Simulated assay, not measured.
Amino acid sequence: MFNLTPTELERYRRQIMLPGFGEESQQRLKAARVLVTGVGGLGGTAALYLAVAGIGKLILVRGGELRLDDMNRQILMTHNWVGKPRVFQAMETLRAINPDVEIEAICEYVTSENVDRLVQSVDIALDCAHNFAERDRLNAACVRWKKPMVEAAMNNMEAYLTTIVPGQTPCLSCIFPEKPEWNRRGFGVIGAVSGTLACLTALEAIKLLTGIGQPLLSQLLTMDLNQLEFAKRRPYHDPNCPVCGRVSQESERSAPKQKNPRANALTFTK
Results as ranks from 00 to 15, higher is better:
Glu108Arg: 06
Gln258Met: 13
Pro261Trp: 02
Ala231Ser: 10
Leu66Asn: 08
Glu102Lys: 00
Ile106Ser: 10
Ala152Met: 00
Met1Lys: 02
Gly64Thr: 04
Thr7Arg: 00
Asn139Glu: 10
His79Val: 02
Asp136Ser: 03
Leu68Val: 01
Asp123Trp: 06
Val87Lys: 04
Ala202Asp: 14
Gln15Gly: 10
Gln227Tyr: 12
Glu250Asn: 13
Leu42Phe: 00
Glu178Asp: 11
Asn183Pro: 04
Arg95Leu: 06
Gln168Ala: 09
Ala205Arg: 07
Thr5His: 02
Cys244Asp: 01
Leu225His: 13
Arg62Pro: 09
Gly188Asp: 04
Asn3Cys: 04
Pro239Glu: 06
Pro19Asp: 13
Leu35Phe: 05
Pro256Ala: 14
Thr45Ser: 01
Ser254Leu: 15
Phe230Gln: 12
Asn98Ala: 07
Arg14Gln: 02
Pro85Tyr: 06
Gln120Lys: 08
Arg185Gln: 05
Val189Gln: 15
Gln168Gly: 08
Lys179Cys: 13
Glu92Phe: 14
Thr37Ala: 06
Leu48Cys: 06
Thr78Tyr: 10
Phe187Cys: 08
Arg14Pro: 03
Val61Lys: 11
Glu158Pro: 12
Ala231Asp: 15
Ala32Lys: 00
Asn183Ala: 03
Val193Ser: 12
Lys30Trp: 01
Leu217Ile: 13
Thr201Asn: 00
Gln214Val: 09
Pro85Leu: 14
Asn264Glu: 11
Ser25Pro: 02
Gly188Phe: 07
Asn156Asp: 05
Ile212Ala: 10
Thr78Arg: 00
Val143Thr: 11
Thr162Pro: 03
Val110Pro: 14
Arg117Cys: 04
Gln74Asn: 01
Leu94Met: 11
Val101Asn: 00
Leu4Asn: 00
Arg33Gly: 01
Phe176Pro: 08
Leu118Ser: 02
Ala51Lys: 00
Lys257Arg: 10
Val36His: 05
Gln249His: 06
Thr169Val: 07
Thr222Val: 15
Gln74Lys: 04
Asp136Pro: 09
Ala96Gly: 05
Trp81Arg: 12
Thr201Leu: 00
Ala46Ser: 09
Arg137Ser: 11
Cys128Val: 02
Leu161Ile: 07
Arg73Leu: 08
Lys146His: 04
Met71Val: 14
Met71Lys: 12
Asp136Met: 14
Thr269Gly: 15
Leu138Gln: 08
Leu50Gln: 06
Lys257Asn: 11
Gln74Ser: 07
Trp81Tyr: 08
Glu151Gln: 05
Arg62Val: 13
Gln227Met: 09
Cys128His: 00
Arg184Phe: 15
Asn155Lys: 15
Glu92Cys: 01
Val247Asn: 13
Leu29Arg: 01
Met223Tyr: 14
Leu266Ala: 04
Gly64Gln: 07
Tyr160Arg: 03
Leu66Lys: 04
Cys171Phe: 00
Phe132Asn: 11
Cys142Gln: 15
Trp182Arg: 10
Gly44Ser: 12
Glu181Arg: 12
Ala205Ile: 09
Pro6Arg: 07
Arg86Asp: 05
Gly63Leu: 05
Pro177Trp: 10
Val110Thr: 12
Ala152Asn: 00
Thr210Pro: 09
Ile106Lys: 03
Asn131Ser: 15
Cys241Pro: 13
Gly191Thr: 13
Pro166Gly: 09
Met71Tyr: 14
Lys147His: 10
Asp238Cys: 01
Leu200Ala: 09
Glu204Ala: 10
Leu208Trp: 06
Pro170Thr: 05
Asn98Gly: 01
Gln219Ile: 06
Ser251Lys: 14
